[in-house]
């Protein structure tokens, strides 16, 4: 299957392409709105800062394309910053309006070491995954947690994960395979 990976200028898209290749999927990196709307599955990856990512997504028209996908209930997987950008608002960079694909907001981590780095259990998924983040999502659509941190959200075709499935070894590949299978 062709999976579109949304390019917003600062993401580590190569690792996502590689993980998809392990599963026999072809990752296509683009910010083209038509390609995003039409793809059977889209990944919104997650490295960089919220403000520059939003600027990039708006200028390229990718933001509107992503909203159209959720209106159609098409599968979109947001990873780390990609999940955070899907909410209404983030505290990062002095406050940034998000894509508002899902209800919720993003606040800075106040407990433990920041950034929260390393492998942590996600009980609902029965495995440990790799996390690397300083901000956390608060959302009524949360479906999985890790140490009280929202690890996954799911609503209307949008699936968001705070961890990096493309960097979580066999557990991450299995998660990606399951996530992409209904598409």
């Amino acid at each position: 299957m062709k999976v579109v990976i949304v390019d917003y200028g600062a993401g580590n898209t190569r690792s996502v392409v590689a993980a998809l290749a392990h599963l026999g999927h072809e990752g296509v990196v683009t910010s083209n709105p038509d390609a995003i709307v039409d793809a059977p599955a889209v990944v919104l990856p997650g490295v960089g800062s919220a403000r520059s990512a939003m600027v990039h997504l708006k200028t390229t028209g990718a933001a509107g394309a992503l909203r159209e996908r959720t209106a159609n209930r098409s599968l979109t997987l947001g990873i780390c910053l990609g999940m955070q950008l899907a909410t209404d608002h983030s505290e990062e960079d002095g406050g940034v309006a998000g894509l508002a694909l899902i209800s919720g907001d993003v606040v800075r981590l106040t407990r433990g070491r920041v950034p929260r780095l390393g492998w942590a259990f996600v009980e609902a998924l029965g495995d440990a995954f790799y996390f690397a983040h300083s901000y956390v999502v608060r959302s009524p659509h949360a479906v999985a947690w890790s140490d009280d941190v929202v690890a996954a959200v799911s609503v209307d075709g949008f699936v968001g994960v705070q961890f990096h499935p493309e960097k979580s070894g066999p557990a991450g590949l299995d998660f990606l395979a399951r996530c992409l299978s209904p598409a």
Partner: peptide
């Protein structure tokens, strides 16, 4: 780096 990234699924 690119060759490593293509095979490795850990950070």
């Amino acid at each position: 780096v690119a060759r490593v990234a293509d095979v490795l699924t850990i950070p």
